[in-house]
Nucleic acid binder design. Structure first.
Lengths: 341, 341
DNA sequence: AAGCGGTGTGTGCACGTTCCCAATATGCTT
DNA sequence: AAGCATATTGGGAACGTGCACACACCGCTT
């Protein structure tokens, strides 16, 4: 078996057929579901496959079927933010594993420069992948629109802004998660609840803010615009956001922060200002990233079901490749209570 | 051009040939280097390619050439650690981009379960990728050995333990980085320098410890085994490691920690014990991960050139696929001085 | 004038697979 | 007994490309 250095020619379907004493067609039928094959032939073919160590040549198969049996995982800008985001890693890992279970390889595609965008678009529209898992924060991402128009099966992570309705997506219920958190803060007796929002050109940022406003309005507390401060999910923007909040409304007794990373920054700023957490100011995050456990006090936050999100993305994409219609899936979040509230 | 919903049959090399008024062979020659093609024909073909929007069918090409023009990025266990490690993300991103510049897609392969290992090994040895970028911490990884025996071009990240010499690798100069850090601590007047090691079944862990011992021995300070405590690169192991260190040698005035993540834990433990950093105890990390900037005080650390590592891994792998011999590349590290020393 | 090396071009074949169709065998109905 | 639907099998064709080969042309030497 050992063949140090050189690679030998792998066995083909022809070798298997000869070994099993049947024709290529029969072997092919066994490989693809086993319909219209007698049990005896089936058994002989399987034995021959085991004996020869045959593995199907995907290139030859793709050439005739027109499918590639592979899927692209497309990350548009900004890559830095995503790669530093632990949730992104969970998502990438989950998608890879879910696809592996279906024997579908995942191609990682990073569209940073304009040159890369063009190359990737060409690659995809040329049919070298059957579908695309899309992670993008930009509203109305041009590459997504292009793929959609080309008829490439597409599943986005999070609700895409400004893309036609014919694109699938899987998202956590951001609005409901925000509602849960703000309700939780209200239940602790807090009434001056600030918010550091996410980027408002992303659906997540918009929805989380909407949930915040909804609950406060419904509870009769009302919205004080001095309590609303913009952020961009980065740690630093949390820090400056909290500083602004303290300046505009020194009497805050709670902050709902739209991401754990920003919440880290908020905690830093509060500590510097001499506010105790949670006694003086309660802090609620969003994401349940590992960062939430690294802070002191540990962060109360909203857990997004990233493992389920990745699994659903793969499921929806494979279904769409199989000819089904685009679908939208919204998954529930969960309040994780720790020490910061 | 718009073809809402359905995907049309892409143009083939035949279409281009007809459009340009030449034969398939001429188009193929233009595509692969353009040797033995007249300038006139070259121009006509390029125009036809632009007009038709032709993209080569990689499946058909692979079928005849035997190459796949794609590369696997293989991560063996433990996946959790790697995916949480920011350096891994930089590595993955760097490799993807470097490969993209060569128009080579990257397939992400995660070998977690035994089932996945088998599937991936089959996939690779069947020739569905031309080579593999390997990230593995395990000594004598069975999957790596199997690939090496099958003659698959292989480039490891970090020096692999117990693999034959016929495997390429790219690594930072761990030993020299450790030497730099310990010399730096000595230059600050510290003499009771503890160390929290990395896992000693990894070359990085071994080398960093070796650098530590080397400098202390050469400086005439000598090795006190109570100052050497094992860790596994995780934040928690840094915390417990520092506690053990404080118990075994309460008079330490510095700690060299073999990873930034562990250094985070060390800082936590020191703070709890009431030791000031850097006044009472100087702390040096390793990696220069984003974590190094998140600590208070910010961490002095050793920067590994991850961007160059990924670029070199890709370069060496492509060279090896092109027929060159395996190579080992060692890249220099850099001391980054911040507040913790 | 014939031969020669280099350049440029077209054509048949092969790569390994799936799909389609024909051919045969089997069982059941009329 | 003939007819028909169903199960099972084999073989030709096609997918789109690169490669080897044959051929034509040119300018130069012998």
């Amino acid at each position: 078996m050992n063949n140090a250095g050189g690679r030998r020619r792998p066995p083909t379907i022809h070798d298997v057929a000869r070994e099993a004493g049947v024709s290529r067609g029969t072997v092919s039928r066994v490989l693809n579901g086993g319909h219209y094959v007698s049990p005896a032939a089936q058994e002989a073919v399987n034995a021959a496959i085991r004996k020869t160590g045959y593995v199907v040549n995907r290139h030859a198969r793709s050439l005739i079927t027109g499918r590639s049996d592979s899927v692209g995982f497309l990350l548009t800008e900004p890559q830095e933010r995503f790669f530093e985001d632990p949730n992104f890693n969970v998502l990438l890992r989950g998608c890879t594993q879910a696809l592996a279970a279906h024997d579908v390889p995942l191609l990682l595609m990073l569209a940073g420069t304009e040159d890369e965008r063009r190359r990737i678009t060409r690659y995809i529209t040329a049919g070298h992948v059957d579908g695309v898992l899309l992670v993008s924060s930009r509203s109305g991402d041009p590459i997504a629109e292009e793929l959609r128009e080309a008829g490439v099966p597409l599943v986005a992570c999070g609700k895409p802004i400004g893309l036609g309705s014919r694109v699938s997506y899987v998202a956590a219920d951001d609005r409901d998660g925000a509602r849960d958190m703000v309700r939780h803060l209200l239940s602790l007796g807090r009434r001056r609840i600030g918010v550091v929002t996410g980027p408002l050109d992303t659906p997540g940022g918009v929805e989380r803010l909407a949930g915040y406003k909804e609950v406060l309005t419904d509870a009769g507390v009302g919205i004080d615009e001095r309590l609303v401060v913009p952020g961009d999910y980065s740690r630093l923007s949390g820090e400056t956001g909290a500083e602004r909040l303290l300046a505009q409304a020194p009497d805050i007794d709670a902050v709902f922060v739209a991401s754990d990373l920003m919440a880290q920054g908020v905690l830093t700023a509060l500590e510097r200002a001499g506010r105790r957490v949670p006694q003086d100011v309660a802090v609620g995050g969003f994401d349940d990233s590992p960062a939430a456990l690294a802070t002191r006090p540990e962060l109360t936050t909203i857990r997004q079901p990233w493992d389920r999100i990745s699994a659903e993305m793969v499921r929806v994409l494979l279904a769409q490749i199989g000819g089904e219609d685009p679908a939208a899936v919204i998954l529930p979040t969960e309040l994780v209570k720790r020490q910061s509230t």
